[in-house]
Design a protein around this nucleic acid. Structure first.
Length: 437
RNA sequence: UCCGGAAUAGCUCAAUGGUAGAGCACUCGGCUGUUAACCGAAUGGCUGUAGGUUCGAGUCCUACUUCCGGAGCCA
């Protein structure tokens, strides 16, 4: 306690470690309440938020006037004071202020700590990120992405970054953004999968994690035109192998968020017990059984079709953990999926449906490793065979069974955070009708 | 692209076809423990745009614009 007079430059999240010490916080004024000779400043610095109390007798006249009158919402300030434990403070700790320096007095701030409309907030996304729920959301995203990289690194995966400019489509060209590429055309990648298949033949176990682009004219809570995806690909893996990989990964990443982001989940008012229950193994339901169930429930559905969003919701309502739906008819799935040797009309594929109505967060499959089957499928899907030359090489030189999946980061986060729309799960969302700010 | 809904003060919302209102924010005043503080005062409007019906339109009709929700497709 001999260094009590030293001023410690600290982050607000470390306040409890500095009880009775003098600290300096560099941040912004989130909110202010004042009561005659006493002012309460709610200060945020990006790491957390805390309350600072200013008594008129403890500071100079100028500083008190600044705190009680002049400081506006979101003014940038440097606060010095002593850390004290206090039951009445939201964090359990607060700062008894000795001095405040205003770095800039903010102009009238448009976002208040109260309800606003979506359009208004989305137009102010650059400022909205400062609000507590958005801040909590981004902290959870950060933890989820770190947990993702840790999981795959610890399981001997090599991170291989896929290109974003691509010459061709993975699943047809209809949903691709076209860009000018010198004298030619190129497309923004809608998936790194084909490149991951190449990399898996070189490294064994690989993944890519990055943005992907789809110009789907979708205006729903589950769609962005630019979204982040993790795509692992594993040589010699079967469909069952990657279902195990997927459930281990998802339960690990959710566990990490629960472990490290409890305060953030509380800010979002998330029921944490629901997340604590997310442990492997997840449920498995064949497409055939899913259809049987939907028919029993009286939902209009024709065998052979892909499952729609309302179908997925109806199924997920029965489960307290994610559920795999596997072995869809090949007819409604992509050309690169391997057929089930026992039932060739079914593909060795699986989607993972999140609980609580959040829908599909993973699509994966075992890949067709036979070149003749692939050539047939490319023709059936009317895809230009010549742009798949390099891809078909993979089936000529040491082709092996292999499998992989893609998990949508924002969809998964919207489920973890129980946020209704994916647009709040990415810092600057890109939607069909919105590309600002 | 299709189906449905909405647009009023800086923000969130009211207003039987008959004078456009409240809360919050901002400004001013009061208060030594506030938790989106509270109390008092002041301020704030070409009702999304363009037409139409009517003695009279924020309200009814038409078109357009923008946004929201959903479908298909997908992660």
């Amino acid at each position: 306690m001999s260094d009590d007079l030293t001023i410690h430059d600290i982050l607000i999240k470390d306040l409890p470690k500095h009880e009775a010490k003098t600290v300096r916080i560099k941040g912004w004024l989130y909110n202010r309440r004042h009561k005659g000779k006493l002012a309460f400043l709610v200060v945020r610095d990006g790491s957390q938020m805390c309350q600072a109390t200013v008594f008129k007798g403890d500071v100079t006249e100028e500083v008190f006037e600044l705190c009680a009158q002049k400081l506006t919402q979101e003014s940038s300030i440097i606060v010095e004071g002593v850390v004290r434990a206090d039951q009445r403070a939201p964090l359990g700790f607060e700062i008894s202020v000795k001095n405040v320096v205003a770095v800039q007095i903010a102009q009238e701030y448009p976002i208040q700590p109260k309800e606003h409309g979506v359009d208004f907030l989305m137009n102010k996304r650059h400022l909205w990120l400062r609000s507590s729920k958005q801040w909590a959301m981004m902290q959870i995203r950060n933890e989820f992405l770190k947990a993702t990289r840790d999981f795959f690194y610890d399981n001997d995966f090599t991170c291989i970054d896929a290109p974003i400019f691509t010459p061709s489509a993975c699943e047809g060209t209809t949903n691709l953004f076209e860009v000018t590429y010198f004298e030619d055309k190129a497309y923004l990648s809608q998936s790194g999968q084909l490149y991951m298949e190449a990399a898996a033949m070189a490294m064994g176990k690989v993944y890519c994690l990055g943005p992907t682009f789809r110009s789907e004219k979708s205006k729903t809570r589950r769609h962005l035109t630019e979204f982040w995806m993790i795509e692992p690909e594993v040589a010699y893996a079967t469909l069952d192998d990657i279902m195990v990989l997927a459930e281990n990964y998802v339960s690990y990443a959710v566990g990490r968020v629960v472990e490290k982001c409890r305060p953030h989940l509380e800010i979002l008012e998330r029921d944490i017990t629901k997340l604590e229950n997310i442990k492997a193994p997840f449920y498995r339901l064949s497409y055939d059984d899913a259809v049987k169930y939907l028919k029993e429930k009286g939902m209009p559905f024709e065998y052979g079709n892909d499952l729609g969003a309302p179908d997925e919701t109806a199924i997920s309502e029965n489960y307290d953990r994610p559920v795999f739906i596997h072995r869809y008819p090949t007819a409604c799935k992509a050309f690169y999926m391997a057929p089930d040797p026992e039932k060739p009309h079914l593909a060795l594929c699986a989607d993972l449906i999140a609980p609580e109505g959040y829908g599909e967060i993973i699509g994966g499959s075992q890949r067709a490793d036979d070149i003749d089957y692939l050539l047939k499928k490319i023709a059936e899907h009317k895809l230009p065979a010549e742009i798949f030359d390099w891809y078909l090489d993979l089936r000529k030189y040491g082709s092996v069974p292999h499998s992989g999946f893609g998990l949508g980061i924002e969809r998964t986060l919207s489920w973890i955070c129980k946020v209704p729309h994916v647009r709040e799960c990415i810092p600057f969302p890109r939607l069909m009708e919105r590309i600002y700010p």
